[in-house]
Amino acid sequence: MTAAPPFWIAQTVTFLTALALVCAFALLAFRSLHLGIRVYAAQSVLLGLAGVLLGGGGVGMGVLAIGLKGAVIPWFLFKMMEEIGVRRESDPYVPPALSLGVGVALALLSYAAFKALPGLSPSVAGGFALSLTLMLLGLWSMAVGRKVIAQILGILVVENGLFVAAISTEFRLPIFIELGLAFDLLIAVMVSSLLVSRIRETYLSIDSERLNRLKG
């Protein structure tokens, strides 16, 4: 067990991760996709800072997160949206109030799951619980989102959840995990952009409503 981080760092990290959780909920609340991408960028930056502050192996990952997910990916998504000319709001299937309610329920479920484990120290349990919450919220926002872009955003939020899990344990994860995370991120963005362009070619709209020909 490496030495516990000094008190002020622990406080700021908790504060930063709490803000990241708020961002995830914000993603569910707001209708507009542009705002959604900005919220995602903010969340990534917050988590990146937390990673840097926690030190150890997390510094490299944190810087990478801030740079890549804070700036490059949002720019890429904005460019893709203009190219496709999608309308601005994401009109989700479920009204925002209900989706927030479900989000809260998912958060409670995640925290209960990890609190039930005896062998975990509170901080690590909190970290894992937060990561599970982010992942479930990402999944929920994908399920609710009507636009293809919403699904890509959902994947990215899920990936942020994994990032939290990676930095939350006091042991630095071997480079494989970091490589895996980066690799997963790369896939999400590259493939989705390729496919979105091909979907645009064929359907001339990225409304996932039109994407349900294959039935039965």
Binding site: S131, M135, I155, V158, L162, G180, D184
Partner: peptide, 10 residues
């Protein structure tokens, strides 16, 4: 699959 596998990493 990507979403599913993310949970496997967790």
């Amino acid at each position: 699959c990507t979403v599913g596998i993310a949970f496997a990493l967790l």
